[in-house]
Design a protein around this nucleic acid. Sequence first.
DNA 1: ATCATATTCCATTGATTACTTGAATACTTG
DNA 2: CAAGTATTCAAGTAATCAATGGAATATGAT
Lengths: 226, 226
Amino acid sequence: MTMRDREFKSAMYESLARVGKAISSGRRIELLDLLSQGPRTVESLASEVDQTISNTSQHLQVLRRVNLVQTKRNGTYITYALADDQIADLIRSLRLMGMTHLAEMRVTMERFLGDRTRLDSIDGLELLRLMQAGSITLVDVRPSAEYRAGHLAGAISAPLCDIKARMAELPRDQDIAAYCRGPFCVMAIDAVEILVRNGFRAFHVTEGIADFRALNLAIETEGAPA
Amino acid sequence: MTMRDREFKSAMYESLARVGKAISSGRRIELLDLLSQGPRTVESLASEVDQTISNTSQHLQVLRRVNLVQTKRNGTYITYALADDQIADLIRSLRLMGMTHLAEMRVTMERFLGDRTRLDSIDGLELLRLMQAGSITLVDVRPSAEYRAGHLAGAISAPLCDIKARMAELPRDQDIAAYCRGPFCVMAIDAVEILVRNGFRAFHVTEGIADFRALNLAIETEGAPA
DNA sequence: ATCATATTCCATTGATTACTTGAATACTTG
DNA sequence: CAAGTATTCAAGTAATCAATGGAATATGAT
């Protein structure tokens, strides 16, 4: 191999590594995961990931430098969004890979969720099957902004924070499937516990919007396009 | 969100970041790309990527720690291989993402390959179409070990290093499609230049085995299974 | 056993990274 | 134009990482 070939290859792989570096930080992956729920401002991202605004801003800029995210000014706020749906897919395959290959992730889930995961739960594929069979109520327990940015067709918005107020709208004679951001989000689990305590027939979906998209489930958006 | 939830999320995303870290080095991505051609020993990987054995070994161990690669002892050699085909897919989507989103990669290709890429070339999909239309000769110009580890069904092995000796076996009345490791590998381009100079009708395929696998083209292996 | 070979481990170097704090910028709104 | 707010920039610190060269392991052959 010539010197020139080596230089070429090194340059190309080094470029790819820049994308790898962008997803080599837990914080940044969490940010991307949040952004796969919909666009958000720096401030709201920072408080969601429990970091300073300054630090969050710097992570976002790392992501922007490799075009994983885009910015748009909205009044005095700057809104970050994923560059395209392909990015959500990349994070999803990274997550699937981790779940299959990293035992430590299963250990962590067991340690923190333990028997809570053994409550009734289904994944996206099972959900699809149940939806086709009919007679199931879909409940989206994420904050309403994320519901508006994109939710399963037919799902009712009942954010966890005021789910008690929304219970009147939910059927007591039908199975309820609650979903949230994805497998690292406990909102659906929390919601199901509350619902079950109040006499509903409910279980949670272990996957989230990014997975539903990948499975080609119908997604609806409300209000202004992202 | 409770303290406990934050701890759980941080732990999960930090685990994912370990996989991200593994693919955050150009050298390691190059190693994974090489391994997607087939299993190899540390020594042969080191000389292929122009690094010391020691350094290569350490990179490989980083990859092994997150189960992206597996080792097997073969006599006095230790052979590294991808953990599964899913890994090759991950590298492939990383590469596709980079090619779509990073302008610098296109610039680098232009700078190093320039008008050589403007020679006749086709991608995997076009190859599929041509193969179905028939009357095309497939030539695999990678080293024979890689051919043996897996090659397109029907392809003739003609390693670049002794392609002149193999020319007698190639047809002069048919189009020849030469492929190598993938888009960062110039062997197919080199081979086509030599072939054309010698009066063959030849063009190169811009993708490699990992892409052919992803496109569900038929792959054959020879000799002992990997 | 002893030697040779392939690989890994270890200590050190210089370079990069995450996070914090405080100041600077870039907008919008009055 | 001035004031206010959201975001970014800059500098400093502690931690991590890539690469090197040499010592240590492990296996196979003599």
